[in-house]
Design a protein around this nucleic acid. Structure first.
Length: 925
RNA sequence: GCCCGAAUGGUGAAAUGGUAGACACGAGGGACUUAAAAUCCCUUGACUAUAGCAGUCGUGCGGGUUCGAGUCCCGCUUCGGGCACCA
C-alpha cells in the first residue's frame, strides 16, 4: 500500500462529511476558541493558490486547539455583494445573484478539496435575506441612536429628543455634524420636517451632504479611478464635484475609542500604527478670528497655537461656507471663477497638482492676540473636510503656507530664534520663541513646547477659542447608487425619511429589468416596480456599500440561523469575540475600522458583550505570482534557452507557468499552447533543456502565472498543498508562489507513510521504544507545540522532516512512538493523519478527537552539551562535553584544548566558570 | 515628504547575544535499473591549501557596545509596503 492521496483524500473527506465531525455547538463544559478567516468575495476567477494561505494557517490552529480540548468555532462564508457581479449583470443582463451563486458553488468545492475543518452548517452569505435582515436591523438601530459625548456611548435618539424638548441644545453632549443652537421653544415650534432635519445632525446613521464625482452627461456618480483630468474615462464627458445628500455613518464619533481600543488588542504594531495614522488624532486649539468690518467670525483649527504672532494671512477652503460670507463685491467675480475651477477638479487631481493657486477675497481678519490685520485668501490647499475648512497661515513655520506666501508675495515673520526662513520654512517644533509679544501675552524666550501650552491656556482663559482634539477619521459614506447591495429599510413620507418596522424586515431586494442607472440619473432601484410601501410612500433607492455586510458577520456565525436576534444572548455570552482573526492587511483602514465601529455601537446598545471584535489578528502575506519567460529571437519563431540568450537579440515573452516545471519548459506543450507557436524552434542548452527566465509579479491571468489549487491537489494531494504553502516561508511575509520545492514536501509525506508501510507490510509493532526513538519524538512534540503557538509553521514542517528522517534511520517500529506522530501531523496534513490513524493504527474514532501530546523533558536530555568558553576576555571556543560533565571537567577540557594554550599564552589559569551555552570566564594571573 | 518593515548561499529560508546557513529546492557525483521514472547514499557559502590533518574570509555599507553581534545601539544605502496638502 503506497501513499496515494488521490484515493485517500476524497474518502477521508467523505467520512468527515458523513459524520458531521466539524459541527460545533455551544458547550459550557469546554473552553471556547473562535478562529476566523476574513471571508472571501467569490470572484468569477475562482480561488488561486494565494487565497488558501491564511485559511490553511487558521485551519492548522483550529485543529490544534481542538486537539487541546477547546470547543473551536471555525466558520466560513461569503462576502457576496460586490461590483464585479453587478458589472457582469450590466453587460449580460444576468441577475447578479445567479453569477454569485455559481461562483460560491465553485469556491465551496475548491475549499472542500483542501480539507478545511469548517462547520459548514454555519455558512453565511451576505446577500441572503436571512442574513441582511440583520444588516438592515443594525442600520435601523444606528438611525435611532446618537452619540453621547459625556457618557462616551451611543444612546437612543429618544433621550436626545427629551433633552431638546426640555432645554433645547443647551447643555447637550452629542456628537454632531454642526454646532446647532436652539431653545426648547424653538424646537417645539419646528414642524415635522424641520425636526427630522435637525435630528439628522446627531443620528449615528444620518442623511448628510458629501462631495462626489458627478458626471451630468452620463447621469451617474463616478469613482475616482473612473475620472481623469476632469473628464470621464468613458466618453470623455466633463465631471464635476458635487455635494450629494446621502446616508452616512457617524464613525468619527467613535474616533477616540477606536484609538484607545487598539492598546489592548494583540495585533501587529504595524497594523495598529496604520489605524492610528488613519484615525489621525491631533491635539490643538480652535480659535476665533474676527473679520474686519463684518460680523463674521472665522473659526480655525491649529496645532501650533504658539505661532499665532506669525500669522500673515488666512486661507479658506474653496468649499467653505465662509467664502461667500467674507468675499467683497469687487473680488466676487474672481473668487467665484476660482471656486468653480476647483470644483471641476477631482480631489485626487487637486492633490496631484502641487502648483500654488488661490484668490484674495478682499476681506481682512483681525489677529485676536496681536491685533494685526491680515488678508483672507481662498485656496485649494486647504481642505474643507478637516478641521473647520479655514486656517491661519504661518508661512515661517509651515511649508505649505510658505509656498503660498512666496507665490503671492506675502510677508514671512520668523518666530523661532536662529531659524533661517529665507529659502524655506522651519517646520520643526523646537527652539526658542521670538517676535511673539502682544498686548496681553508674551511668549518670547519660551521653548516651543511651553509656548504651545501657554498660548492654549491664554486662548481658553480669554474666550478667544478652546482646546480641541481633531481627528482625521471621517464619517463613512453609506449610500451606493448600485443594485447589488442591501436595500435600506427606509421610506420617505413627505420628504421625511422613516424606518420600516422591524416586523417588515428583511426588505427584499426587488427584481429589476436592467441594472443600469435610469436615464435621469436615478439608481437602478428606481426601475423596480412597486418599490414603495403599501401606503404608497417611496422606498430608498440607494443600497448599502460593501462593508455593511462584512461589519458584523463574525457575530452572526455564533448563531447563524436565529430569526429573532442577530445573535442570541446565550451564544454571544459563550463565544464572545474572535480569538484569532487571519486575513490580509489591505483591510486595515476599511473593514477593520468599520467592524470595530459597528461592534462598539452594538456594545453600547447592550446587544453584544465584548467591545472589541478581534482579539488577536494576523496578516498573512500576499502570495505573488512567479512568471516564466521564453526568449524569442527577434523576427523569428526561434526561442533560445535563458542561459544561452546573451548571444542573441531576444524579446522576453510570458509563458504559461503550468507548462513549465522547475523553470524547464515542456517544449511540446509550448507548441500546443498557441497556434502561433506550433512551429516554434528551440535552441536548447548543453543539457538539452529549455530553461525559462522568471520574475515576481502580481498573480494575474495576463501574466499566465495563475496557479489553481485544484491542479496542485490533483497532482500531489491536499496535504502536500497545505504543507507546501506553510513551508514556503513565514506566514506574515509576502512571497512568490514557486512550485519548485513542492516535491520536497511530497517526498516527506511519502517517507512519513513509509514509517508505517513497506509495500503492503505494516511496520508497526509493540516493541519498546529506544531512548533515541523517544528523544526524536519528544523533540518534535516540543518544537511543533512551540511553533504552532508562534505561528511559525514553516519551521514546524522542517521539524517533522528531521524527525521522520531520524526515526526511519533508527528503524523505529514502536507503536508507542508511531501512534503519536499522526496526532502531531493532523493539523497540517489531516487526511494522511486520519488514514494512518484508522488503517495503520486501527482506531475507530476520528483523529480529530485525539488529544495533543505533551513533551516529556526526561526524554529530551541532551547526551552532550556545548560549552562556550572565554579566557580572561580574550578568546572563545566551544567544547562539547557529556551532559553530566562538571565545570571542572570542562575546565580540564579547555586547558587541554590546543587553542587554549595559544590564547592563554603561558599565563596561569586561576579560575574557570562554566555555564552551558553561556559566557564562561577563565581568569588568568 | 512622513510612517512601518526588510536585506543571510544558485533559490525559498533557519538561528533565546554563544559552532551562521537547520530544513527543503536546485546542482554535481554515485548505487539500483537493459533504460527511464521512482527510490536511496555522498558532496554542495567563498577563497586558499600540503586538497589526508587545515587555514582565511563571510549575514547590504560604515562605526559602536560586548569576552563574543545576523541578532543590541548610532549613522547610511537599497528594496518593499502603507499614508500623504490633516494646518
Amino acid at each position: 500500500m503506497n501513499y496515494n492521496p488521490r484515493e485517500i483524500e476524497p474518502r477521508v473527506q467523505q467520512q468527515w462529511h458523513d459524520s458531521n465531525i466539524y459541527r460545533v455547538d455551544t458547550d459550557p463544559s469546554k473552553p471556547k476558541f473562535y478562529v476566523l478567516d476574513m471571508f472571501p468575495y467569490p470572484s468569477g476567477a475562482g480561488l488561486h493558490v494565494g487565497h488558501p494561505l491564511g485559511y490553511i494557517a487558521s485551519d492548522i490552529y483550529s485543529r490544534y486547539k481542538r486537539l487541546q480540548g477547546f470547543n473551536v468555532l471555525h466558520p466560513m462564508g461569503y462576502d457576496a455583494y460586490g461590483l464585479p457581479a453587478e458589472q457582469y449583470a450590466i453587460q449580460t443582463g444576468q441577475h447578479p445573484e445567479v453569477t454569485t451563486n455559481a461562483n460560491i458553488a465553485r469556491y465551496r468545492s475548491q475549499l472542500e478539496k483542501i480539507g478545511f475543518c469548517y462547520d459548514w452548517s454555519r455558512e453565511l452569505r451576505t446577500c441572503d435575506p436571512e442574513y441582511y435582515k440583520w444588516t438592515q436591523w443594525a442600520f435601523k438601530r444606528m438611525f435611532e441612536s446618537y452619540y453621547d459625548t459625556a457618557a462616551d456611548a451611543a444612546r437612543p435618539i429618544s433621550e436626545l429628543v427629551k433633552h431638546l424638548e426640555a432645554r433645547g441644545t443647551e447643555g447637550l453632549h452629542a456628537a454632531g455634524t454642526k454646532e446647532l443652537e436652539f431653545t426648547a421653544a424653538e424646537w417645539h415650534a419646528m414642524d415635522e420636517k424641520a425636526k427630522s432635519d435637525a435630528l439628522m445632525n446627531w443620528r449615528i446613521a444620518y442623511l448628510g451632504n458629501s462631495m462626489v464625482n458627478w458626471c451630468p452627461a452620463l447621469g451617474t456618480v463616478l469613482a475616482n479611478d473612473e475620472v481623469s483630468e476632469g473628464l470621464s474615462l468613458r466618453g470623455g464627458h466633463p465631471v464635476e464635484q458635487k455635494m450629494m445628500y446621502q446616508w452616512c455613518l457617524r464613525v468619527s464619533a467613535y474616533a477616540g475609542r477606536l484609538l484607545e481600543g487598539l492598546e489592548k488588542l494583540d495585533w501587529t504594531d504595524s497594523l495598529k500604527e496604520t489605524q492610528r495614522n488613519w484615525i489621525g488624532r491631533s491635539e490643538g486649539a480652535e480659535m476665533h478670528f474676527a473679520v474686519d468690518g463684518s460680523d463674521v467670525v472665522l473659526d480655525i483649527f491649529t496645532t501650533r497655537a504658539d505661532t499665532v504672532f506669525g500669522v500673515t494671512f488666512m486661507v479658506l477652503a474653496p468649499e467653505s461656507a465662509y467664502v461667500d460670507a467674507v468675499t467683497t463685491s469687487d473680488r466676487r467675480e474672481a473668487v467665484k471663477a476660482y471656486v468653480e475651477a476647483t470644483r471641476r477638479k477631482t480631489e485626487r487631481e487637486r492633490m496631484i497638482d502641487k502648483k500654488v493657486s488661490g484668490e484674495f477675497t478682499g476681506a481682512y481678519a483681525i489677529n485676536p492676540l496681536s491685533g494685526a490685520r491680515v488678508p483672507i485668501y481662498v485656496s485649494d490647499y486647504v481642505l474643507a473636510g478637516y478641521g473647520t475648512g479655514a486656517i491661519m497661515a504661518v508661512p515661517a513655520h509651515d511649508s505649505r503656507d510658505y509656498a503660498f506666501a512666496r507665490h503671492f508675495d506675502l510677508p514671512v515673520i520668523p518666530l523661532i530664534e536662529g531659524a533661517d526662513v529665507s529659502e524655506q520654512s522651519f517646520d520643526a517644533k523646537s527652539g526658542r520663541m521670538i517676535n511673539s509679544k502682544g498686548p496681553e501675552l508674551d511668549l518670547n524666550g519660551m521653548e516651543v513646547k511651553d509656548a504651545i501650552a501657554a498660548a492654549k491656556r491664554f486662548i481658553e482663559e480669554k474666550g478667544i477659542g478652546r482646546v480641541k482634539v481633531n481627528y482625521r477619521l471621517r464619517d463613512a459614506i453609506f449610500s451606493r447608487q448600485r443594485y447589488w447591495g442591501e436595500p435600506f429599510p427606509v421610506y420617505y413620507r413627505d420628504g421625511i425619511p422613516c424606518l420600516l418596522p422591524d416586523s417588515e424586515l428583511p426588505l427584499l431586494l426587488p427584481d429589476i429589468s436592467s441594472y443600469k442607472p435610469t436615464p435621469d440619473g436615478e439608481p437602478p432601484l428606481a426601475r423596480a416596480e412597486g418599490w414603495h410601501t403599501p401606503q404608497g410612500y417611496p422606498l430608498e433607492l440607494n443600497t448599502m456599500p460593501g462593508f455593511a455586510g462584512s461589519s458584523a458577520y463574525y457575530l452572526r456565525y455564533m448563531d447563524p440561523r436565529n430569526n429573532d436576534a442577530l445573535v442570541s444572548r446565550e451564544a454571544n455570552n459563550y463565544w464572545r469575540n474572535v480569538d484569532l482573526y487571519i486575513g490580509g492587511t489591505e483591510h486595515a483602514t476599511g473593514h477593520l475600522i468599520y467592524s470595530r465601529f459597528w461592534n462598539k455601537f452594538l456594545y453600547d446598545l447592550g446587544e453584544v458583550v465584548e467591545d472589541e471584535p478581534f482579539r488577536k489578528l494576523i496578516n498573512q502575506g500576499m502570495i505573488q505570482g512567479r512568471s516564466n519567460f521564453v526568449y524569442r529571437i527577434k523576427d523569428t519563431n526561434t526561442f533560445v534557452s535563458a542561459d544561452m540568450r546573451d548571444a542573441y537579440d531576444t524579446t522576453p515573452i510570458h509563458v504559461d507557468v503550468n507548462i513549465v516545471s522547475n523553470d524547464v519548459l515542456d517544449t511540446d506543450a509550448f507548441r500546443a499552447w498557441r497556434p502561433d507557436y506550433a512551429d516554434a524552434e528551440f535552441i536548447l542548452n548543453a543539457d538539452g533543456k529549455y530553461i525559462c527566465g522568471w520574475a515576481v509579479e502580481k498573480m494575474s491571468k495576463s501574466m499566465f502565472n495563475v496557479v489553481n489549487p485544484d491542479d496542485i491537489v490533483e497532482r500531489y494531494g491536499a496535504d502536500t498543498l497545505r504543507l507546501y504553502e506553510m513551508f514556503l516561508g513565514p506566514l506574515e511575509q509576502s512571497k512568490p508562489w514557486d512550485t519548485n520545492g513542492i516535491d520536497g514536501v511530497n517526498r516527506f509525506l511519502k517517507k512519513f507513510w513509509g514509517l508505517y508501510y513497506r509495500g503492503d507490510e505494516l511496520l508497526v509493532d509493540d516493541s519498546e521504544p529506544t531512548p533515541d526513538n523517544l528523544r526524536s519524538l519528544h523533540k518534535l512534540i516540543k518544537k511543533v507545540t512551540a511553533d504552532i503557538e508562534n505561528f511559525s509553521f514553516n519551521t514546524s514542517v522542517a521539524a517533522f522532516m528531521i524527525c521522520v528522517n531520524e526515526l526511519s534511520q533508527q528503524k523505529c517500529r514502536s507503536r508507542a512512538v508511531l501512534e503519536v506522530l499522526p496526532v502531531l501531523l493532523a493539523p497540517f496534513a489531516p487526511h494522511i493523519a486520519e488514514e494512518l490513524w484508522h488503517v495503520a493504527l486501527g482506531h475507530h474514532t476520528s483523529i480529530v478527537d485525539a488529544r495533543w501530546p505533551e513533551a516529556c523533558e526526561d526524554y529530551l536530555r541532551e547526551s552532550s552539551v556545548n560549552y562556550a568558553v572565554s579566557f580572561n576576555g580574550k578568546a572563545r571556543f566551544n567544547i562539547q562535553m557529556p551532559a553530566d560533565a562538571t565545570p571542572a571537567d570542562v575546565e580540564a577540557a579547555a586547558l587541554a584544548h590546543e587553542s587554549a594554550a595559544r590564547w592563554i599564552d603561558g599565563k596561569t589559569v586561576r579560575k574557570v566558570i562554566v555555564v552551558p551555552k553561556k559566557i564562561v570566564n577563565i581568569v588568568v594571573g
